[in-house]
Design a protein around this nucleic acid. Structure first.
Lengths: 204, 204
DNA sequence: GTCTATAGGAAGATAGAC
DNA sequence: GTCTATCTTCCTATAGAC
């Protein structure tokens, strides 16, 4: 792996573990056994590293959100949700210090907001398709509130787990999926509801 | 107001607006037109200021959470929820940078976790009382998941709003109450459900 | 209690040799 | 590409005069 790549990977790891604001360029270079000067040969500033890692995250997330145009069956939908959670965990430095990071970098904030908007649209599209299939019963205002709560839970689940003192692992992600499913279940009808209740257990 | 008090109030204001990690002791003293030396006469470190403001928050929140031992009627319960949101907004510096702040100060983290635990207990007690009144229909595992989602939404609603680019005002808080109510409504039965649906509108 | 001055120490970033 | 050395800036915190 080239040095430039190594810097990015190590930075991602450190940002995720310590939080971006607590990671210095010196720490990054120390961990890689390279000099600070070398780091600055590859990146002209710390923001450049942050920004490129955000590119990775953005790219991955947008690719994920672009797929669900064709109707998925219900199992696929929850698998899709799991992929979202994994992506969030992989780039959790974005979420851990959202307010701080976004407040300090207006451009990232704008891009993050666009992602949130896309997520909302994707969620709405899934819920609407369930609604027209008559498997989900909810008014428009209920769906809107549900959407918002789903995004909120997906966005902050990992922060919540960290503050609660949990180590971010597969079980924490599964529990996040479980929590989101729990939001939807009470609106589901008959067979779909049973199906999702069962699926939910797999995530507990 | 004595200087010591002024420092605390101004710090609270700055922490809330800029985020605690972005507020320097020099900024605080500048804003108050006092010297940095004077600030350090009153507080031996920045953490001392943070810690004392956390005391305020903790005191207010625990007082709020201690009340609901006698059964409240449903309107009071949502008023209680509104008070919680107001308290969170008043001390939003705690929530904006939760992970960061708590990770840097183990003791605060521990105290914060205790508050979360208390909140969960209070929520559970309210939901259980609704359950025994037969106005709420949900299994134990559903109630547990609901509890968790309520705390999560209450904890991160304001962060979510800030990242979405909203100015934290009364309407944002009301919308938070609305979102939490939305979590509970689908589990309610008959009259209670109607009543809460109506109450919900007041928060939109 | 309050000030000025300054120590002491990060952190981000650059210069210039190899 | 990589290193060492260093600059600058900013921040916490202290010393000592008033």
């Amino acid at each position: 792996m080239k040095t430039r790549e190594r810097i990015l990977h190590k930075s991602l790891e450190l940002f995720n573990t310590l939080g971006e604001p607590n990671v210095t360029t010196l720490l990054i270079s120390d961990e890689l056994d390279i000099s600070p000067g070398n780091l600055y040969y590859h990146f002209k500033s710390k923001i450049d590293i942050l920004s490129e890692l955000f590119d990775w995250y953005e790219h991955e997330m947008l690719a994920l959100l672009d797929v669900p145009n064709e109707p998925m069956d219900i199992e696929d939908q929850w698998f899709f949700l799991h992929l979202i959670f994994e992506s969030i965990a992989r780039y959790r430095f974005v979420y851990q210090d959202v307010v701080n990071v976004m407040e300090r970098h207006e451009r990232l904030k704008h891009r993050f907001q666009k992602i949130i908007t896309k997520k909302k649209a994707a969620t709405l599209s899934i819920l609407s398709s369930l609604q027209t299939q008559d498997s989900l019963r909810a008014s428009d205002s209920e769906i809107e509130a549900l959407c918002e709560n789903i995004i909120l839970t997906a966005t902050f689940w990992i922060s919540y787990a960290i503050v609660a003192g949990k180590h971010v692992d597969e079980s924490v992600l599964s529990r996040g999926v479980y929590q989101v499913i729990s939001l939807v279940v009470p609106y589901l009808e008959g067979e779909q509801r049973q199906q999702l209740q069962q699926l939910k257990q797999a995530y507990l």
